[in-house]
């Protein structure tokens, strides 16, 4: 597989996304909203609860809430590809641009990787920007109120460094498979949205669970996601074949 070919496909897709307001607003809006809203809720809750708490208790509560809310950024990383990847694959189907693309001297894997990359880069990038805003706001508050920087912490580092991109990959791959079965962008987005439900459940259980230490739990979730990504990758690769696309994609 030639990475340069995939990169050509990815940059073209990124140019198309840049001109699509719906995608652009989603990419900017959702992480920005979460980056401001989540720490806002967190700080508001802590301010409301702070009466009668010692500084140590307040720090502990803040850490617990931070860990709980960190999981939401994984959800964003999984939701955004349902918007972008559905445009990437179903959009090509609707514009009927897949056939000339498939006629070029590129392999199925190069095309699939390029299109996946185009969905992955902006989604993870936007999530990281949202996360950065979250970290800055939380740290400014914690340094002012508690005299310590609560973030980053090891759990957050694993969630943002490993779980978030892995969840994004899972969502992109799921969307490739969904795109092969639907002809409508909204249908692809709605079905793609279902992918995040089990993920959401896992994240809530993980962040509230007392069974394992949080860091261990984050590592277990990362491992499970990596295995799921690998399995879905082979399924997506089997789905994204020239002949299948031209004769069976509906």
């Amino acid at each position: 597989m030639r990475f340069a070919k995939s990169w050509i496909v990815a940059t073209k897709d990124l140019s198309v996304f840049k001109k699509n307001r719906y995608i652009l607003y989603s990419l900017i809006g959702l992480p920005l909203l979460m980056g401001i809203l989540i720490p806002g809720i967190l700080i508001f809750s802590l301010q409301a609860e702070s009466a009668g708490l010692t500084q140590a208790q307040l720090t502990e509560t803040a850490n617990m809430l931070i860990n709980l809310f960190t999981a939401y950024f994984v959800i964003i990383a999984a939701v955004l590809p349902t918007i972008i990847a559905s445009y990437s694959f179903v959009g090509e189907k609707l514009e009927k641009s897949l056939e000339p693309l498939l006629a070029t001297p590129t392999t199925d894997s190069e095309l699939l990787f390029g299109k996946s990359l185009a969905a992955f880069i902006p989604c993870v990038g936007a999530t990281y920007i949202g996360t950065a805003i979250f970290v800055v706001i939380v740290d400014v508050w914690s340094f002012t109120e508690l005299g310590v920087l609560l973030m980053p912490n090891p759990y957050w580092a694993i969630i943002i460094g490993a779980v978030t991109p892995l969840a994004c990959v899972l969502s992109v791959e799921a969307n490739v498979i969904i795109s092969s079965r639907v002809n409508d962008i909204r249908a692809a987005q709605q079905i793609g949205g279902l992918v995040i439900l089990p993920l959401l459940l896992v994240m809530i259980l993980a962040s509230t669970s007392q069974i394992f230490p949080l860091v261990t739990l984050a590592l277990i979730v990362s491992g499970a996601l990596a295995v799921a990504d690998l399995a879905l990758f082979y399924l997506a690769k089997a789905t994204f074949k020239r002949e299948e696309i031209l004769t069976k994609w509906k």
């Binding site: 198309v16 001109k19 699509n20 514009e95 009927k96 641009s97 000339p100 693309l101």
Partner: peptide, 16 residues
Amino acid sequence: KMVGFLPENVGLYENL
């Protein structure tokens, strides 16, 4: 690489 292909539907990227 050696053939050029014009499919029945032009399939151009309308936003580019």
